[in-house]
Design a protein around this nucleic acid. Structure first.
Lengths: 111, 111
DNA sequence: CATTTACTCAACCAATTAGTTGACTATAAT
DNA sequence: ATTATAGTCAACTAATTGGTTGAGTAAATG
């Protein structure tokens, strides 16, 4: 049998498969914010953005903290790291040749 | 406005959000195979696996070549690289602390 | 106290997804 | 020529997704 059952990875990749949610992640990388501020640049209802945020929250990508009447959102890195770790297993397929060459030469020059 | 429209990235992350498809990717990293061979370990119909493979193919993650009556499948790295490149922008959030500390110390010691 | 702000919640809708089965086509093997 | 293999295609189903609106709650402000 093959390990197909990795719900955290499912959730992370699914969360990142939507442009609005990736934009939210990008925004949160610049600093914590409230939902309203997050929603402002998007051409959709606050409810819609709230739902996207919940998807990110369920995937563990953002932390939502109730502070007074606003919700403070913070980016969490752990799931992103897990995704990168998974993708890294297939490095051989996506490392571009210049990179690969550069690394090879770097290793050589260490000797 | 924010760049939410990156259909290739949408497709790549969506394709990778399913365990069966990730298992197919993992299998193909070990070498090219036919659909039947790919399908063998899974507890689902050949049609179902064929559909998963089509999702991967549409996302550009695998290349399907008709060879006689079998389909030969090969992993393509470019979309994976694009995903890694996107995720790398948020490195600061997922680099683990030992790594981060090590880098910090390395930089300090350079002075 | 009244109002505005920052949300949540429930109900609904249309589109997509992940799976099934049954019928079909094309190639290879006996 | 017959049969088995490798796979596609169409039709169906159940669940999920991404969006909407309208009503409601909780906290800050006038």
């Amino acid at each position: 049998m093959i390990a197909t059952d990795m719900p955290q990875l499912d959730a992370t990749f699914a969360a990142l498969s939507d442009g609005t949610r990736r934009a939210i992640v990008a925004r949160l990388a610049d600093g914590e914010t409230s939902l309203s501020e997050l929603a402002e640049p998007f051409d959709m209802s606050l409810t819609a953005v709230s739902k996207h945020l919940r998807v990110l929250s369920n995937a563990g990508l953002v932390d939502i903290e109730k502070r007074g009447r606003t919700r403070h959102c913070r980016l969490r890195g752990a799931p992103i790291k897990e995704a990168v770790d998974w993708l890294s297993k297939y490095e051989a397929f996506w490392i571009d040749r210049f990179d690969a060459l550069a690394r090879h030469l770097a290793k050589e020059s260490e000797k």
